[in-house]
Design a protein around this nucleic acid. Structure first.
Lengths: 341, 341
DNA sequence: TTGAAAGCGCTAACAA
DNA sequence: TTGTTAGCGCTTTCAA
């Protein structure tokens, strides 16, 4: 493991010049710069990030705090962030808060505070005021992804609007009896997300002149199983059966499709189903959905942080709202018998 | 951000004593130790990992190198490793090799070498000799998970045996026409895994006195869609239809179940299906499977590394082979008409 | 059991 | 453009 001294020796310059030549900070003549680089390459020299961090106060490392890794949305955001960080020469250190409360405390009290990271990306976390406080105390840039974090800059899709688009799609097809499968209070991993999607759903109905029927709402936990169960409940009674379901996630929507099948209902013949996400399985099931782009969200979070860490590199487009797109596949169609009002 | 000096001042001792009291290295009287701890707590002092690493040469950080994050197996291994590391006071830095070749090279040439990690966990990676070489040059403990890495200590289930167990389960139920959906050559994310599972499948058949029929083998890419397609192909011809399918992953097995349904076949009435993994969706689909435990594999990898990094802490049980268990659910049963031989 | 002091490997003033 | 030098904050001999 050669050090900066050896490179300096081989190149016939001082360590300061090596540092400057390799980091690009400060002026070095082209000739010495290439001599230094050649020497570094020959020796296989790589800076010690610790020594460098200690001297500069910058770590070139970003902390990502996350409640689960195991779900499509989260791992996709992390992947997107990873790639973007790599391109910028940064490492990504992962802090999974999914464990016990102790683990969570320990992350906040010790790990994040070790000065190991230059900035933090918090994904879909419901943080307590004191947790946000300790993050802010670090005096490091923080950006949230996937939910409003009080007092922090956050990247998230407009859930009300997303739900509205989905519901309006069903309305436009002629549906009137539109059920909604949304989050239960216990699953608050995405803050007010369930609530917001329900709000958008109800707003669209109201504007479409359709009365809101509480019997057409069911709670689930954002999983396929949960969606299946909720849908089974919703669809059981042929007399009170909706002609369409808007599920707040694709996994629940897929559960709904499977439940419909098991009840002998055809999709979209007897039942239209739409979800949110464009989950990796959505296409396979022909699921119409409102796509969101988690990998892109991860990338965007990184861009924002880079802008704050390196004002020079700042990316121009910083306030594009997060995209989402209606994707029509084969799970939605006009209801079999269009009502005549 | 208080430093060690301030703690020393407040506790009325030297910085050396603070370091000793807080790290547990060296002897400090109980009274001063508690005084120091109180002072540290009062000031909210946390060591600077950089300064500490620079002085000790240890980073308390482990690098995890992985080809995808987006799949159940990988994210589960990472989660398991994360929790175990957290308990040991270590951070986890993630290196995703899924991108382009450039990204891959850059990870190996720069990132891992920055002396930022004390050890490396390589998950399901097919590494080139030169990549393994550069890892070994680091002179840091490395352990692989999920596939044999030439020259490295590796944790992986016995894929031949896993496949044998699955196939024997079907044989024991009375099946003779047993198809296999395995990996294609292009999907080598898990090395010889597809091959090994096929080997176990064929060995079990042979021992069961069943001839191997190449027409009963289909390739797929380990995804649900791929399994669906392969199964559709396998099941299309009623005359040549197998009574059971062993898929090399649960996702492909679920695809098979869905394909069977779409062809009007009942599972397990007309077709038994078994997979490998115990994927999160397996239970929902009533899928019989050979479970493996990726989170535990991640944890085990961490234990091994901790054993090498801290010989004192060494966990006794180091060579338990990785567990796998046959889980019988409702996707497997005796074939409808048992042959009379 | 404790303290003084010399680094760990690098960067950034400052001076030349 | 380059070199000298003083740290960055901590750990760890060595001595007391």
């Amino acid at each position: 493991m050669p050090g900066i001294n050896e490179v300096a020796l081989l190149a016939g310059v001082s360590t300061a010049t090596v540092s400057r030549a390799l980091s690009g900070n400060g002026h070095v003549s082209d000739s010495t710069k290439s001599r230094v680089k050649a020497a570094a390459y020959e020796l296989g020299y790589v800076v010690s990030s610790n020594a460098s961090s200690l001297a500069t106060g910058r770590t070139k490392n970003i902390g990502v705090v996350i409640p689960f890794l195991n779900r499509w949305f989260f791992s996709s955001v992390v992947e997107g962030a990873e790639h973007a960080l790599l391109r910028n020469g940064y490492d990504l250190t992962l802090y999974n808060l999914g464990g016990s409360g102790d683990e969570r405390r320990s992350v906040f009290e010790h790990f994040l505070l070790r000065k190991r990271v230059d900035a933090v990306i918090a994904i879909s976390l419901e943080l307590t005021a004191s947790e946000v406080g300790s993050l802010l105390d670090l005096n490091k840039p923080i950006v949230g992804v996937g939910g409003p974090l009080p007092g922090l800059q956050t990247l998230s899709i407009d859930d009300v609007q997303v739900a509205r688009v989905a519901t309006e799609h069903l309305l436009a097809l002629g549906h009137r009896a539109i059920a909604h499968i949304g989050g239960n209070d216990e699953v608050e991993m995405d803050f007010h997300l369930p609530t917001n999607r329900r709000v958008g759903y109800e707003a669209a109905l109201r504007e479409g002149g359709v009365a809101i029927d509480p019997a057409l709402f069911a709670e689930a936990d954002f999983t396929l199983q949960g969606g299946y169960r909720a849908a089974t409940h919703l669809l059981r009674d042929p007399a009170a059966r909706p002609t369409a379901v808007f599920a707040a996630s694709d996994e629940m929507a897929i559960g709904t499709i499977l439940a419909a099948r098991d009840l002998g209902l055809s999709v979209p013949g007897d039942l239209s189903v739409i979800g949110v996400d464009d989950h990796e399985l959505a296409e396979f099931f022909g699921l119409s959905t409102v796509a969101q782009y988690p990998a892109e969200q991860g990338r965007r979070a990184v861009e924002i942080l880079m802008g704050q860490l390196h004002p020079a590199r700042r990316t121009p487009a910083e306030n594009i709202p997060l995209r989402f797109d209606l994707i029509e596949r084969t799970s939605t169609a006009a209801p079999r018998t269009v009502g005549v009002d």
